[in-house]
């Protein structure tokens, strides 16, 4: 019996190791390439462990003539403003869908979910025309507005599941104590879903931080580009500078990895709740 348990343990560790390798291999390749000097980047056969590791690629990414810092601040601006707007809209709407009664509620909520059914490529032509008519092409605003198209539904859906997790009795007690409906919502419920709001904000930030297609289409001038398009542009017409590209990629990943590290538990709770409760 003990022997069986021991082999079971060994098998568990073996599979855990395989899983770790599968997940990490591309990350290790990225880190490895980002630490290689130009002459080593192109040696054949390639080696996983850099022979003469250097941080030069990272310095070059921030160095003179590099647009990385500009792209980074553009992305930060677009993603933060989008997230704030989504949160402001979603707080009310998700509470409405979670707690209030009105005719057509289910229908409207299904409409919200339906909006997740088509590719963004399906609405990009009309959106492009709208932006063109409003003279918004090549502005940050065009990105912020178009990001609302996919992030508002997600934000409402996710935040709703956090509201559903708050016991209804709390609001009822507040109403009996003479609070208005709005006061109960604002003073009792909102503070309770603050962690959920954090998770929702982080998720929306993460979606807008990496958005690629709209950014590729609506922005023409180099100085207004966001990170994903800027990174894609590293693949030059001549020779791709893989060292710089991977160093930049790692720098882009770090903020999202850090955010996810902190909100993982909340987000998982919201995603699973939201998915199962519709």
């Amino acid at each position: 019996m003990i022997k069986r348990q021991k082999t079971g343990k060994i098998i568990t560790y073996l599979f855990a190791l395989l899983l770790a390798i599968f997940v990490c291999f591309p990350l290790i390749v990225m880190i490895s390439m980002s630490l290689k000097a130009p002459d080593e980047q192109f040696t054949y056969p390639p080696h996983l462990i850099p022979q003469h590791p250097t941080l030069n690629n990272y310095f070059q990414v921030f160095g003179q003539g590099s647009m990385f810092a500009k792209y980074f601040s553009n992305s930060l601006l677009v993603a933060s403003v989008s997230t704030l707007i989504v949160l402001g809209v979603a707080i009310f709407s998700s509470y409405g869908y979670a707690r209030m009664n009105f005719p057509g509620k289910n229908f409207l909520f299904i409409l919200l979910l339906l909006s997740q059914l088509f590719p963004l490529a399906a609405i990009i032509v009309p959106l492009y025309r709208i932006m063109g008519n409003l003279k918004l092409i090549d502005t940050y605003l065009s990105l912020i507005i178009s990001y609302l198209a996919f992030s508002v539904p997600v934000g409402v859906w996710l935040l709703r599941s956090f509201f559903l997790g708050v016991p209804q009795e709390l609001e009822e007690a507040a109403l009996i104590d003479g609070c208005t409906r709005f006061q109960a919502f604002w003073k009792i419920v909102i503070p309770l879903v603050r962690p959920g709001m954090g998770a929702t904000a982080a998720y929306v930030f993460f979606l807008t931080w990496q958005e690629f297609m709209f950014a590729l289409t609506f922005i023409n001038s180099e100085s207004k580009r966001t990170l994903p398009v800027g990174i894609f542009d590293f693949v030059g017409q001549y020779e791709t500078n893989w060292g710089n590209l991977m160093a930049a990629s790692i720098l882009v990943c770090i903020p999202v990895f850090v955010i996810f590290f902190f909100i993982q538990k909340q987000l998982v709770a919201g995603l699973t709740e939201g998915a199962v409760k519709g």
Binding site: L27, M30, Q210, F212, P228, F232, F234, L245, M246
Partner: peptide
Amino acid sequence: PGVIAGMA
């Protein structure tokens, strides 16, 4: 981000 995964 998808673009980065694609490049890697």
